[in-house]
Write a protein that binds this DNA or RNA. Sequence first.
DNA 1: CACCAGGGTGGTT
DNA 2: AACCACCATGGT
Length: 212
Amino acid sequence: MVFGDVHDLLLAAHGPQRWWPAESRFEIIAGALLVQRTTWRSAEKALAALQGRRMLDPVTLAAARAADIESCIRVAGFYRSKAARLKKLSQFVVDCGGTDALADEGTDRLRERLLRLDGIGAETADAILLYAFARPVLVIDAYLRRFAQRLAGVGAAIADDEIAAWILAEIDSVPKLNELHALVVAHGKSHCRKQPRCDDCGVRALCRSARP
DNA sequence: CACCAGGGTGGTT
DNA sequence: AACCACCATGGT
């Protein structure tokens, strides 16, 4: 079993996920921060509230009062930290000359700059690189780590960089990397929890209820 | 009532 | 390097 097969099986079971739902690069960037440790449903409400007040752009958010951002994004949880971080992130985008200017940066340099920001770790940085800037990077989340552990066998203890090297050797195109992460999330989110036996997903080893 | 959701940070061992 | 508590709301 390899990850090329995982991509194909999950795609057959769940269908195309159409990520990332957004109308602009900045909306993806802001959404990537807001969706941390919450549901997309909640993050979407926070984005809609910002949009409703015409605050969903880097210039406005960078100059906004924390309290005004907080009142919009409370639904997404951790609203105090997220508001401060969203403001800093927006200031960063402004300082760089906007999202189009950021799109001219090399992937490695852009990743390092994102990781330096407050509240942007490896997963969020890679999600931004992949979904906002169409860079061929692998987004590693808790689901994917568990999948890799199971596929590697018990007592493997694989590091993130090994997971990346493994999967990127098989999947290196942006469309497939885009779909893979979306499918991994979709699979872990609804399918296996509601149907613990997971008879029709085609990847039983990846089901939440499956024992390693 | 407990548990989880498209994480990250800072402190302790 | 591997844990840990914490951040906080909303849904099941």
